[in-house]
């Protein structure tokens, strides 16, 4: 196990390197110039040139890339072009908000979908099952940018239960977490139901049933544990997406997360900031993948980790 972890950690390097290089090339090659965007329409040519020179943007892309890598090796990921603040500090201040929201959304999705999914499977083809289908369809077809404001209107404006937007306090996270977690809950609900059903038709379950175990016990003890594997895959995938894909939720709820920072930085062509965001998000992804794989091993001893 320890060797496996060490190898996985080592494998981080090529992944991160690949992401950094791809992003660097893309952001520098697409049209749009941070200096033009920053100075606006009335800027004088002389101001643009001197700023570009001062920022080192007048050098060839390869030189800029090498000096970025050099900085990276020294642990320096640069200074934002637009805010003049160190990228590292800015990103560090955003991560707690991002993690908090992603975990809360995940928690909501799991708590909501797994029990309901098992229930729907156990009561297959009944009204409960039908209702769970409707709930999950509603969840997936409801875009965030529609659901979020609706939740605010109902629960913050009409009922006054939660703050409208902004971060801080336990009550502030409820609506954003539900908004972000709904799509994931919908997928997990369907997935749990179907994989429980799938497992339920397998031989060992029928054996358990034949042994005279009660239906609930069969589902909880045998079916669920085995059905969780595909669920874990999807949770892993989706959780990664929650890290950077929360832009719309972050925007609606004025949540100071990394997703919004990255989008505004891309729009402003704030190269160092974009690079920094992508770098930390990539690390986040890889860590989540890593945990997913470990969980695989825990849930299904048949998968040998040290393949």
């Amino acid at each position: 196990m320890r060797g496996w972890i060490a190898r996985r950690t080592l494998l981080l390097v090529p992944t991160l390197f690949g992401v950094i290089t791809a992003v660097f090339l893309m952001i520098h090659l697409i049209p749009g110039d941070p200096v033009e965007i920053m100075l606006g329409e009335t800027a004088m040519a002389a101001d643009r040139e001197s700023l570009r020179h001062e920022l080192g943007l007048d050098r060839p892309v390869t030189a800029q890339y090498l000096s970025y890598l050099g900085g990276l090796a020294r642990g320096d990921i640069g200074t934002s072009i637009h805010t003049h603040e160190p990228v590292f500090g800015e990103i560090l201040s955003r991560w707690p908000a991002t993690l908090e929201l992603a975990l809360a959304a995940l928690l909501f999705a799991i708590l909501f979908s797994i029990p309901l999914g098992v229930l729907a499977a156990a009561r297959k083809d009944t009204a409960v099952d039908g209702a769970s289908l409707m709930v999950s369809l509603f969840g997936i077809a409801m875009p965030n940018f529609w659901l979020g404001p609706l939740l605010i209107i109902v629960f913050s404006i009409e009922l006054g239960w939660f703050p409208v937007s902004g971060r801080g306090g336990l009550d502030a996270i409820v609506l954003p977490a539900v908004t972000l977690g709904t799509a994931m809950a919908a997928i997990l609900l369907r997935l749990t139901r179907s994989s429980v059903l799938e497992v339920a038709s397998e031989d060992f379950i029928r054996t358990a049933r034949a042994k005279g175990l009660g239906e609930t016990a069969v589902y909880l003890k045998h079916a669920l544990a085995n059905a969780l594997l595909p669920v874990v895959t999807v949770v892993g995938l989706q959780f990664g997406a929650l890290l950077s894909g929360a832009v719309i939720t972050e925007t609606i709820f004025s949540w100071p997360g990394i997703g919004r920072l990255m989008i505004t930085s891309i729009e402003a062509r704030d190269y160092p900031m974009v690079q920094g965001c992508v770098l930390t998000i990539a690390v986040g992804y890889v860590l989540v993948n890593f945990l997913t794989d470990v969980l695989y091993g825990v849930l299904d001893p048949r998968i040998r980790l040290n393949r």
Binding site: P149, I152, S156, I157, V164, S165, G166, I252, F253, S254
Partner: peptide, 14 residues
């Protein structure tokens, strides 16, 4: 800072 316009107006209403 409230990036979404609808939400900004709701904060005002509230």
């Amino acid at each position: 800072i409230v990036p979404d316009e609808t939400v900004r107006l709701l904060e005002l209403k509230k």
